[in-house]
């Protein structure tokens, strides 16, 4: 699967016009065509596409993934810091979003069709519908420029003396990523919860005289988590590359930005590996979703009965 993907991605990138050398010389009349020819040969760009793929694949199989052209470093030296940054950012915002989503989803389901439910529902849809970069700009204006309490972007440097100093840089990106994803998590949770609450075993539990909070937290929540976990796992893979826009606005050096730069900069080696990683993450998300389903399914069948 990944091998097939690598070929598809290779061909797609190859279909993009121009080559790195043209970009290098684009605005500089001093570079002669002799120079361009020499550089093209040096970077192996004078060979046909399939030949380059074969070269790349055979080197990759022996563990040599080549050098990033736009960063002049081995591909993984470039990817690993970006991967780390993205993992921190996504881990935090994703965790936050899932927690808030579960909480507000359960809350909304419990108060179904009452005012609070409508309010949460409205907020959730608002979060889903807001253009992410518009939101990011509004946040920057509010917190960085008007209130001046948070930095507008970037990452902590050596100047960061305390934990808070470096943590400050994460606040706005995390908030905007969380707002973008919490809506759908809330909605999934709410829908799953309403489904479960309507089922017989809940009615039984209520009839036994258990307190509402016991019913919700003890019985319903566990059963409602299954579909949510599936969706959330699927989401995770997509998020991996989807933080691109947030990363760009907040000048956050993560994977999304790396992928974008490598594609636009015609950096074959880097784009390939980064895209493959992104695909692998999506696949992993799918596997996790399936795994979660298998783990939890039997119990659900017993408890929920046929639907």
């Amino acid at each position: 699967m990944l091998a097939a993907m690598s070929f598809v991605i290779f061909v797609l990138i190859g279909l993009m016009p121009g080559d790195p050398i043209d970009l290098m010389i684009s605005a500089n009349p001093d570079v002669t065509s002799e120079d361009a020819e020499r550089l093209r040969k040096l970077h192996g760009l004078d060979q046909p596409l399939w030949q380059r793929y074969v070269n790349w694949a055979s080197a990759a199989l022996s563990g040599d993934f080549g050098y990033s052209r736009i960063h002049a470093k081995p591909v993984f030296d470039v990817i690993s810091p970006a991967l780390q940054s993205t993992a921190i950012l996504l881990g935090l915002s994703f965790g936050l979003s899932v927690c808030i989503g579960i909480f507000s989803g359960v809350f909304a389901a419990y108060h179904q069709n009452r005012r609070l439910d409508h309010l949460i529902n409205f907020a959730a849809f608002a979060g889903i519908s807001i253009p992410p970069f518009w939101l990011a700009i509004l946040l920057i204006i509010l917190f960085s420029v008007i209130l001046r309490i948070l930095p507008a972007g970037g990452m902590g440097t050596v100047e960061a003396s305390s934990l808070w100093e470096s943590a400050r840089y994460f606040v706005l990106p995390i908030v905007s990523l969380t707002i973008a994803s919490v809506g759908s998590h809330t909605r999934y949770m709410r829908a799953a919860m309403i489904d479960v609450l309507r089922q017989d075993f809940i009615r039984t539990a209520q009839a036994k005289g258990l307190s509402p909070s016991r019913v919700v937290l003890g019985h319903a929540l566990r059963n409602a988590m299954l579909p949510v976990i599936t969706v959330v796992a699927l989401d995770f893979g997509a998020l991996f590359s989807g933080a691109l826009i947030t990363e760009m606005i907040f000048a956050y050096p993560g994977m999304g930005k790396l992928i974008f730069d490598s594609i636009m900069g015609n950096d074959f080696n880097l784009a390939l590996i980064a895209l493959l990683l992104a695909t692998a993450m999506t696949l992993l998300g799918n596997l996790l979703a399936d795994g979660a389903y298998v783990c939890l399914d039997p119990r659900i069948r017993l408890a929920g009965g046929s639907r």
Partner: peptide, 24 residues
């Protein structure tokens, strides 16, 4: 369908949006 779903959407869109139609 699974394969299409597994594609990382935004990066693939970027590649597709940058493809040179002349080469197709």
């Amino acid at each position: 369908t699974d394969i299409v779903i597994a594609l990382p959407l935004l990066p693939v869109l970027i590649v597709l949006a940058a493809i040179d139609l002349g080469e197709l």
